[in-house]
């Protein structure tokens, strides 16, 4: 087991544990805690990206998610002045059913991945997701979607401004 393998396991475990804590934190029900664990999840995931040699994406992940999205979340929480979520009665049957359904889906997909040996014969990975390579593609082959994406961001911005106005009709 090489060093990179060990690092993979560490990051994978971190990602999953933090993910679980985002969704179901046994200690706290405060949205702020969830947001914090989301940051941790995203950071450990960008570690996985680095392991996959997608350096640029790892950087973007941390910048956009940890930097922008999570800050947005925290702002909203602050804006709404949310107290800790009071414990409401949770329908245990529904919860159990949900867990079962989700586990069935996960098991089915994992079983398929394992059965089909999806990764076999592809182990000689050497692709480098460097800034140069990605930049060439974005401004070459994918220039049109890229530009459209900028329009999407513009529209989102306009929409958000509209929604945030006091009197929403």
């Amino acid at each position: 087991m090489s060093a990179s393998d060990i690092i993979f396991y560490i990051f994978a475990a971190l990602t999953l544990v933090c993910g679980i804590l985002v969704v179901a934190n046994p200690v706290s029900r405060n949205p702020v805690t969830s947001a914090m664990f989301l940051v941790l999840t995203i950071i450990s995931m960008s570690g996985l990206f680095v392991l996959l040699h997608a350096f640029f994406l790892a950087a973007v992940q941390i910048l956009v998610y940890a930097g922008a999205v999570i800050v947005l979340f925290l702002f909203v929480i602050m804006l709404l002045d949310l107290k800790e979520e009071q414990r409401r009665h949770v329908n245990r049957v529904v919860a159990a059913l949900s867990v079962i359904v989700v586990m069935v889906i996960a098991a089915a997909i994992i079983w398929t991945i394992w059965q089909t040996k999806l990764g076999d014969g592809l182990d000689s990975a050497h692709l480098e997701g460097s800034l140069r390579a990605v930049g060439h593609l974005v401004f070459g082959k994918y220039i049109l979607p890229f530009e459209i994406l900028s329009l999407v961001l513009l529209v989102a911005m306009v929409g958000v401004i509209l929604l945030s106005k006091k009197e929403l009709k």
Binding site: F8, A12, T15, L16, G19, I20, V22, V23, A24, P31, S34, A35, T41, L48, L52, F73, V76, I77, L82, E85, R88, V90, A95, S98, V99, V101, V102, M103, I105, A106, I109, I110, I113, W114, K117, L118, G119, D120, L122, D123
Partner: peptide, 28 residues
């Protein structure tokens, strides 16, 4: 290999799905 990453991905997806179904707070 590839499948390790994919399994992590599936598990993470399932955790997210479970959260969508179970959690009551819109932000979460």
């Amino acid at each position: 290999g590839l499948q390790h990453y994919l399994i992590v991905s599936v598990l993470l997806f399932s955790i997210g799905l479970l959260g969508v179904i179970i959690r009551r707070n819109v932000l979460v």
